[in-house]
Design a protein around this nucleic acid. Structure first.
Lengths: 228, 228
DNA sequence: CGAGCGATTGAAAAGACTCAACCACCGTGG
DNA sequence: CCACGGTGGTTGAGTCTTTTCAATCGCTCG
């Protein structure tokens, strides 16, 4: 939690090993390190917003970032919550289009930046890296298909359970720490509904609520409710 | 409509020019033609199903194909409807995973098949082709983000309008021709709800209903209802 | 001509949303 | 150190959309 300003080198970066850059050899990593800059972000700070043009990619070394679109009324829909080791914003790098989503930190974070040209260059040169990227793109496509189905077919209660299961693995050893509003925007419902359902889950002994933080007690049951 | 058994060569294939293969030069196309087989599919015939392992990709020369997952109750959720020129099932080619979706024809179709190895080979050799694929993957990722948001935030009525607008461009000069059930599975609702809302739209002069087929009358108004 | 599937209708019930009010915590400034 | 203001969290009530279930209709195919 005590993150704060930190300067990371790619050579020592723990997050790198579980990232898209895991396939880089020593030489690649040194090169990568020369091309990246390292930045500290406060909580609720924007990385980029929908409609702007991408200038590079972001490597989340430490922290959490929400990726979201906005529906008609301006209501956020959180599509994904990124955590350590994830690379953010690389999709828009290929299309030439502006970002279709926005990214904002959920907590203080250390995030490295790699300029577009440098990134595309690495892609040209490194076939394994390319394959990793394509694999990742298609994996996310699959995840989004499931999400679409969930949103379309599952009632809010089930979606909340599903989201809690997902968040539980995103927050690993920590407790889930999201505002009710963000949680609502992740599940795709109203915050009042979230609050009521959380209470139900608490009464059923599935979770414990510590003011803002949520502790998962009965993961198995939650998975069962979430349906798959 | 009078499709039926047809043998297409890639050289003469009209669909090719608007497909992912549009960047192929003459030599590439000849090569492509040698590696593809051409098949006729009846209506409601499966191309592949969720969970099976991909053996190659499908080029939709003529016809329509629904791509769908199944929710918990087994209810289909149509993620996408492919039409002439679209390449189907190439995502699972990269991940090494089994298909995450199923594909079934909505009408009689002519579909070519290219084996996995041949496809991956083309990818290795042809950088422009590769870029096209990556661009396409990220484009679809963006579309799915919008779809997720729609499903999560828009009421059924708006989603139906949105779907009709989309279907109108998929069916181009023809009228929209889907069973009520397929339409419901596309919109993400019950078929009864679809029927009631279609009647509303008809009464409001937005569409005309010819038994099973739907004719769009007031596209502008539908777009307005669909919200974006 | 009959069977059967897809389309349609009606009525009742459930799930969510909205709106409005209230509470609780937290940091600020006096 | 305490009052103040504000944001985020919580609660209640009423409403509306959507679902569900059951029944009927109507077209198409054998």
């Amino acid at each position: 939690m005590e993150t704060n300003h930190k300067h990371v080198t790619c050579e020592n970066c723990i997050s790198r090993k579980k990232s898209l850059f895991s396939c880089f050899d020593n030489e690649n990593v040194t090169d990568l390190n020369h091309h990246k800059s390292c930045n500290y972000y406060k909580k609720n700070q924007g990385l980029f917003i929908d409609g702007s043009f991408p200038r590079g990619i972001y490597c989340l070394n430490d922290g959490k970032v929400k990726i979201f679109t906005r529906g008609d009324g301006g209501k956020e829909q959180i599509i994904h919550i990124a955590t350590s080791g994830e690379v953010i914003g690389y999709r828009s790098m290929f299309s030439g289009d502006p970002y279709g989503v926005s990214a904002t930190t959920l907590e203080e974070s250390n995030i490295c930046f790699i300029a577009k040209d440098d990134f595309l260059n690495m892609l040209d040169v490194n076939a394994t890296f390319r394959n990793n990227i394509m694999k990742e793109l298609s994996k996310e496509l699959g995840e989004r298909a499931i999400l679409i189905t969930n949103m379309a077919q599952k009632p809010v209660r089930d979606r909340l359970a599903f989201s809690l299961v997902m968040l539980n693995s995103i927050y690993k050893d920590e407790m889930i720490n999201l505002s009710r509003e963000d949680l609502a925007n992740f599940v795709g419902t109203a915050t009042e509904t979230i609050i009521r359902l959380l209470k139900e889950f608490k009464d059923d002994g599935l979770i414990e609520i510590h003011t803002r933080k949520i502790e998962v007690i009965d993961l198995k049951k939650l998975i069962q409710i979430s349906g798959k």
